[in-house]
């Protein structure tokens, strides 16, 4: 059910079909708003804006001002959904989910040194999205450091369809594009073995929404007294969370696998 939901949501939010054929992007009024997930606004089909792109754009100004509108989107999406956004509403999460289903390699839930590597997303958030965008210059112009040097969603959803449909843009391809393409291919190939490596270790949106997980409306509740400690939930959890940590963890993407696996019905996904 989650996979179908993810596919329908991705099609609905990237449904400007003319863009894919013409190599142009949508310019309608829905781009005043941000989608909750990592969805590059340079994707030819994108009907709304990327919240991380919008945040960096605000920090790229000559005089830094508080990005109220983007913070507003983060607070609303985060407070209601938390990292449910990652599990159900992120197009790049869907891509990684689909790749992880390919039965090519033995699967791993996490990379070695997970307990250290999981803090990578906070380093990306503060180092690239906030500090990088506010203080990194190319000449006299500030740059959106995360979008420019790391974002695999921009390469996958923006660059590849745009460049394949637009010859003028294709002629400008240089080293930076190949750097980003390398990152994308690296992450996509790891996704076949490890569950959502970008989301677990690098995604700054996950770092933001993780903070809301503790008190968001969409929650997974655990009834300790009813729990038989069979650990079926932890086995089913794609990121190996034990039941006592599911509710409060900043890592849980609310996929609902634990709820489905629980025979004692002591876990429940509730709005």
């Amino acid at each position: 059910m989650r996979l179908i939901f993810q596919i329908i949501y991705t099609i609905l939010t990237n449904g400007y079909m003319y863009g894919y054929f013409s190599g142009k992007i949508y310019k309608g009024t829905t781009k005043y708003t941000c989608v909750p997930g990592l969805n590059c606004y340079s994707c030819p089909g994108a009907l709304a804006s990327c919240p991380l792109g919008a945040l960096q754009m605000a920090l790229n100004k000559r005089e830094i001002e508080i990005p109220f509108a983007v913070l507003g989107f983060f607070f609303i999406f985060g407070s209601i959904l938390g990292r449910f956004v990652c599990g159900w509403l992120c197009p790049f999460g869907l891509v990684q989910d689909l790749l992880h289903k390919i039965p090519l390699f033995s699967k791993r839930k996490q990379l070695p040194y997970h307990s250290v590597l999981k803090y990578g997303k906070y380093i990306v958030l503060f180092g690239m999205v906030i500090v990088g965008s506010a203080f990194l210059f190319t000449g006299f112009v500030k740059i959106p450091a995360f979008c420019k040097y790391l974002c695999p969603s921009g390469t996958f959803m923006g660059a590849i369809p745009l460049l394949s449909g637009n010859e003028q843009l294709r002629m400008q391809i240089g080293g930076l594009f190949y750097w980003k393409l390398g990152i994308l291919l690296f992450l996509l190939s790891i996704s076949m073995k490890v569950y959502r490596p970008f989301c677990q270790y690098l995604c700054p949106l996950g770092a933001i929404y993780g903070w809301f997980n503790r008190f968001s409306l969409v929650q997974i509740y655990w009834e300790k007294d009813a729990c038989t400690a069979c650990m079926a939930c932890q086995k089913a959890c794609p990121i190996d969370l034990p039941p006592e940590k599911i509710s409060v963890s900043t890592e849980c993407i609310r996929c609902g696998q634990c709820v489905k696996a629980c025979q004692a019905k002591c876990l429940r996904l509730r709005k």
Binding site: Y41, G53, P144, K148, G154, L162, Q172, I173, F177, L181
Partner: peptide
Amino acid sequence: ICLECIGIG
């Protein structure tokens, strides 16, 4: 079109 996002800016 965000040139940085698509890797040519």
